[in-house]
């Protein structure tokens, strides 16, 4: 464990806490893409298949359980909660995310570290995570204005993978045969996808204005 990875995990945790805060405090999920939340639940469920077979550390197991539980809780809340689900922007959240699942799975079959069930699903979860934010960014683009908590949620969600890139660089130079090129390339793509959002987020923060995304 290094400081970059720990910072990344904490930033990721903060993004989830901000999302939960937004939904429970405002009893509204406006501006949140249910499709992105469903993709993230799938990412965690397929990535942590080794949850009960390989014990890494208490921290690792607890964080995996938190990520799985929180992503499922958000999906269930947005689908079932009678008050929250009324505020879901159903007609704006129309990204065809099934294509993202299909593309990630095909790519995982072609490009993986080892052609085993667990490795293919791990690669699938890595590719899917890089694309999972797309429905959310499209939704924000269409709705134009971004409320603070939603903006902070997306910001922290993007920032965590940037910390992981620093972690991979650090591990590359400190551990002899460390090679996570699948996660690294995918993590770079993921961080770049957030780039335009980061730009407009920084501009709105600098002008202390409400964040507006160009339609």
């Amino acid at each position: 464990m290094n400081i970059f990875r720990f910072a990344g995990d904490m930033t990721h945790l903060i993004s989830i806490l901000v999302l939960l805060l937004k939904i429970y405090a405002t009893k509204s999920c406006s501006g949140i893409s249910l499709k992105t939340q469903e993709l993230y639940a799938l990412v965690f469920l397929t990535r942590y298949l080794d949850l009960f077979t390989d014990f890494i550390s208490v921290y690792n197991t607890i964080m995996k359980l938190v990520f799985i539980a929180s992503s499922l809780a958000v999906v269930c809340c947005m689908r079932m909660h009678r008050v929250v689900r009324r505020s879901y922007d159903k007609d704006l959240d129309t990204f065809r995310h099934y294509f993202l699942i299909l593309a990630s799975f095909v790519l995982a079959l072609l490009v993986n570290e080892k052609f085993t069930f667990q490795e293919i699903f791990w690669a699938f979860s890595i590719y899917l995570e890089a694309l999972a934010i797309l429905p959310q960014l499209v939704l924000l683009q269409r709705s134009g204005n971004v409320d603070n908590l939603t903006g902070q949620y997306v910001f922290f969600l993007g920032a965590y993978r940037a910390f992981y890139i620093l972690n991979w660089i650090y591990r590359y130079f400190t551990e002899q045969h460390f090679s996570r090129w699948i996660a690294c390339v995918s993590g770079l793509v993921q961080t770049v996808l957030y780039a335009d959002f980061f730009y407009y987020y920084f501009i709105s923060w600098k002008n202390n204005a409400k964040m507006q995304l160009p339609a």
């Binding site: 995990d9 390989d54 890494i56 690792n60 964080m63 570290e113 080892k114 996570r180 996660a183």
Partner: peptide, 10 residues
Amino acid sequence: TEPSDLKDEL
């Protein structure tokens, strides 16, 4: 599984 390909990252 060998420790090398253990996925120790989240």
